[in-house]
């Protein structure tokens, strides 16, 4: 089985589900985004800001810097994005 690489959360398309693998800024922990927790990407722009939903349903806004500092392991990517989205390119 192929090993899924960690990516920055703003590399994933909107609608993706991912597991948090590494936080490069501690502040995210205070917002409930912990290593190992599941998040859903509500909105994301390539290398830009993102809005993610935490496990307990809270939408967290991440600016470009914060989004680039949140590394995740993708678990599911919306079908329409699998072949043409930036992820994996």
């Amino acid at each position: 089985m192929n090993q899924v690489e960690d990516v920055r959360v703003n590399e994933l398309p909107s609608g993706s589900v991912a597991r948090v693998s590494r936080l490069l800024i501690g502040r995210l922990r205070d917002l409930g985004i912990m290593e190992g927790s599941l998040i859903r990407v509500l909105f994301s722009t390539p290398n830009g800001p993102a809005i993610v939903e935490t496990g307990d349903g809270r939408p967290i806004v991440l600016d470009s810097d914060a989004a680039s500092n949140l590394l995740v392991t993708p678990l599911s990517i919306p079908q329409r994005h699998r072949y043409r989205h930036r992820y994996g390119s």
Binding site: R27, L31, P59, D63
Partner: peptide
């Protein structure tokens, strides 16, 4: 340094 923003919507 500009500190990354993260906050609840």
């Amino acid at each position: 340094a500009r500190v990354p923003y993260a906050y609840e919507l």
